[in-house]
């Protein structure tokens, strides 16, 4: 009983506690017994080959997909619960906003249903930060893919989430906007779990890396440890590539 209480307390302190999670699609084990623990305030990158199970893992953590077995808790709450949703800011890969609302309406609507404080100020802030002010009355469908991604990024964090879960957040963004987003993320007082294929993003935004391969966690450690692994003869990409192929 005491052990269970202690574990509950740990789960509440952790932004994410994920144990022995399995998710299958037919015969494919997309996530195969994965354990991930992320402490409050930690910044973690999720790396893996195409089809390694990154997006499925992220969807399970966001409460949008139910695992076949295993346990997932966000600050001690089930991911699909209202309590967990309060903490989360989620950005899927290739996200799309409400296409029948203008840019401003999208921010206003999502900000309102997420009970965002000082909403109008935040809307103005994000419109300025991401350079969307001049198109604020336009439908998202008429925007470039980059501008739509900027809007989706703003929608996922407008409420100031404590735990930002993002799948390729910088896709389609131009370099100046990427730089602004980097700087904003650095200032955010939040836990980050970022799925990406681009190592420079992982190195810039996170301090810890989890590598998935064929649905399994094959490596976990700090970026500095990856740097040490590469030595002088190999590049960090080569090392990561070897780890992904489960050849440490």
């Amino acid at each position: 009983m005491l052990q269970e209480d202690q574990k509950d307390t740990e789960d509440r302190q952790n932004a994410l506690s994920m144990e022995s999670v399995v998710k299958t699609f037919g015969k494919v084990r997309a996530v195969d017994g994965v354990d991930i623990h992320i402490k409050d305030g930690e910044r973690v990158a999720l790396l893996g080959e195409n089809g390694a199970g990154k997006s499925t893992t992220i969807r399970i953590i966001s409460g949008l997909m139910r695992p076949d077995s295993g346990m997932v808790r966000i600050y001690g709450f089930r991911p699909s619960s209202v309590d967990a949703k309060r903490y989360i800011g989620y950005l899927p890969e290739d996200a799309s906003p409400y296409l029948n609302l203008s840019i401003r309406e999208n921010l206003d609507y999502i900000g309102t249903i997420r009970k965002t404080e000082n909403l109008q100020e935040k809307i103005e802030f994000f419109l300025d930060l991401l350079g969307l002010k001049s198109v604020e009355k336009q439908k998202p469908l008429t925007l470039s893919r980059g501008n739509r991604q900027k809007l989706c990024l703003a929608l996922s964090i407008i409420h100031g989430p404590r735990f930002a879960i993002m799948d390729e957040p910088l896709n389609y963004l131009d370099i100046p906007t990427q730089e602004k987003v980097f700087q904003y993320f650095e200032k955010m007082n939040a836990t980050f779990l970022i799925s990406t294929h681009i190592l420079s993003i992982a190195r810039r935004l996170t301090e810890k890396v989890i590598i998935l391969s064929s649905g399994k966690k094959v490596w976990e450690g700090k970026i500095t440890e990856l740097e040490e692994l590469k030595g002088e003869t190999k590049s960090i990409e080569t090392i990561v590539s070897e780890l992904m192929r489960n050849v440490p």
């Binding site: 206003d108 309102t112 249903i113 009970k115 009355k137």
Partner: peptide
């Protein structure tokens, strides 16, 4: 063909209860 069109009148949701906004 692609067209770019702005909305003339925007909806306002601020200061509403979340369920009311939906």
């Amino acid at each position: 063909s692609t067209k770019s069109k702005s909305f003339k009148d925007l909806f306002k949701f601020s200061n509403k209860a979340p369920s009311m906004a939906v």
